[in-house]
Simulated assay, not measured.
Amino acid sequence: MKIEFTPGGLDRGSKFYVAGHRGLVGSAIMRKLESEGFTDLVGRTSAELDLKDREATFAFFAEVKPRYVVLAAAKVGGILANSNYPVDFLSDNLRIQVNVLDAAREHGVERLLFLGSSCIYPKLATQPIREDSLLTGHLEPTNDAYAIAKIAGILQVQAVRRQYGLPWISAMPTNLYGPGDNFSPQGSHVLPALIRRYDEAVQSGAQSLTNWGTGTPRREFLHVDDMAAACLHLMENYDGPDQVNVGTGTDVTIKELAGLVADAVGYKGEMLWDVSKPDGTPQKLLDVSKLESAGWRSEIRLADGVQNTVEWYRSNRSQLRG
Results as ranks from 00 to 15, higher is better:
residue 249 G to P: 01
residue 16 F to W: 05
residue 24 L to C: 06
residue 65 K to Q: 15
residue 259 G to H: 05
residue 188 S to A: 15
residue 267 Y to D: 15
residue 164 Y to Q: 05
residue 216 T to D: 08
residue 92 D to V: 03
residue 311 E to G: 08
residue 111 R to I: 13
residue 206 A to F: 13
residue 140 E to G: 03
residue 159 A to W: 12
residue 218 R to Q: 12
residue 188 S to G: 14
residue 33 L to D: 03
residue 171 A to L: 07
residue 46 S to R: 12
residue 128 P to E: 04
residue 121 Y to M: 11
residue 68 Y to Q: 08
residue 250 T to K: 13
residue 316 N to R: 10
residue 259 G to F: 10
residue 117 S to N: 03
residue 18 V to T: 08
residue 100 V to D: 06
residue 20 G to R: 01
residue 245 N to H: 15
residue 282 P to Y: 05
residue 317 R to G: 03
residue 187 G to K: 05
residue 296 W to Y: 10
residue 86 P to M: 01
residue 125 A to S: 10
residue 243 Q to R: 09
residue 36 E to D: 09
residue 252 V to L: 15
residue 119 C to E: 14
residue 234 L to G: 02
residue 95 R to K: 09
residue 151 I to W: 02
residue 130 R to E: 10
residue 155 L to N: 14
residue 282 P to R: 04
residue 176 L to P: 02
residue 286 L to Y: 03
residue 283 Q to M: 12
residue 49 L to T: 11
residue 19 A to P: 02
residue 168 W to P: 03
residue 234 L to A: 14
residue 1 M to R: 15
residue 49 L to K: 14
residue 265 V to E: 06
residue 188 S to L: 00
residue 137 G to M: 13
residue 128 P to K: 02
residue 290 K to D: 04
residue 25 V to A: 15
residue 322 G to N: 07
residue 235 M to D: 09
residue 76 V to P: 04
residue 149 A to E: 04
residue 243 Q to W: 04
residue 304 D to Q: 13
residue 234 L to I: 01
residue 318 S to H: 14
residue 127 Q to T: 09
residue 142 T to W: 11
residue 91 S to D: 09
residue 316 N to L: 03
residue 186 Q to T: 02
residue 77 G to I: 00
residue 68 Y to W: 03
residue 21 H to P: 06
residue 248 T to H: 01
residue 76 V to M: 14
residue 192 P to S: 11
residue 291 L to Q: 03
residue 240 G to P: 01
residue 40 D to S: 13
residue 115 L to R: 02
residue 234 L to P: 01
residue 61 F to V: 05
residue 53 D to W: 06
residue 132 D to M: 05
residue 220 E to Y: 13
residue 280 G to T: 00
residue 170 S to Q: 05
residue 119 C to G: 08
residue 208 S to Y: 11
residue 206 A to G: 06
residue 258 A to G: 07
residue 107 H to K: 11
residue 113 L to T: 06
residue 302 L to W: 08
residue 173 P to T: 11
residue 97 Q to K: 07
residue 146 Y to P: 07
residue 320 L to S: 05
residue 227 M to P: 00
residue 315 S to Y: 12
residue 104 A to V: 01
residue 157 V to Q: 00
residue 188 S to I: 00
residue 54 R to F: 04
residue 213 G to F: 00
residue 66 P to F: 02
residue 228 A to F: 12
residue 267 Y to V: 02
residue 225 D to S: 06
residue 105 R to H: 15
residue 37 G to W: 10
residue 43 G to D: 10
residue 132 D to S: 11
residue 43 G to A: 12
residue 44 R to K: 14
residue 97 Q to D: 14
residue 146 Y to H: 07
residue 87 V to G: 06
residue 69 V to Y: 00
residue 322 G to L: 11
residue 184 S to K: 05
residue 82 N to I: 07
residue 163 Q to Y: 07
residue 201 A to W: 02
residue 246 V to H: 03
residue 36 E to Y: 14
residue 140 E to I: 02
residue 4 E to M: 08
residue 202 V to D: 08
residue 296 W to P: 00
residue 181 D to N: 09
residue 101 L to G: 03
residue 254 I to E: 01
residue 68 Y to P: 13
residue 309 T to S: 10
residue 102 D to G: 10
residue 106 E to H: 10
residue 212 W to C: 00
